[in-house]
Design a binder for these strands. Structure first.
Lengths: 97, 97
DNA sequence: TCAGCTATTTATAATAT
DNA sequence: TATATTATAAATAGCTG
């Protein structure tokens, strides 16, 4: 979306990298907000610039979304583990008989 | 960006909310990736759909970015606290004299 | 550097299949 | 209900003062 097409690779020139960062960061934050509102989604977005500055957005709070993220990931692990156990016992039974 | 202009408010119709969620989610994830690459930024994006499904992107890993986020926030608190202490002592001195 | 401008590209809302 | 199309809105790359 601009005067020219660009390829997605690190921008070498540090000035234009900074300008692009500023423009696209605000675009990304805006779109995150819009998605959260339009679709009733819970969204957390954390951005560190290459100079270490922090920018963030969260539809509720970053902390609560991170907590939910961790809980969800744990559940996934449990599901995966439960499946693994089943697969393992299946394999073992068929080896042993 | 579409056949018509829309206002940013929760989409009532659940079917079109789902369709919009799907389209905009993929757009948001794409733009997060682009920003990370173009500008050498560290980005974490966590999205929970209204039905509780999790989608995420992280330029490195969500966990490491969350850790960095927490560390950065702690530093901010320390800075704020240090400032508060100074302001308080200034105010107290000027009250006491 | 640094904030506008606009020609283009890109994203997507509505529609069609 | 899911996928593809297309007209249009929105984002933004490079420019300009």
């Amino acid at each position: 979306m601009g005067r020219g097409k660009i390829v997605i690779r690190r921008i070498d020139n540090s000035t234009s990298r900074q300008v692009t960062f500023c423009k696209r960061r605000s675009g990304l934050l805006k779109k995150a907000k819009e998605l959260a509102i339009l679709c009733d989604a819970e969204i957390a977005l954390v951005i560190f610039s290459s100079t270490g500055r922090l920018y963030d957005f969260a539809s509720s709070s970053v902390k609560s979304i991170i907590d939910r993220y961790n809980r969800t990931k744990e559940e996934h692990h449990q599901v995966l583990n439960a499946t693994s156990v089943k697969v393992c016992s299946f394999l073992m039974q068929h080896r042993l008989h």
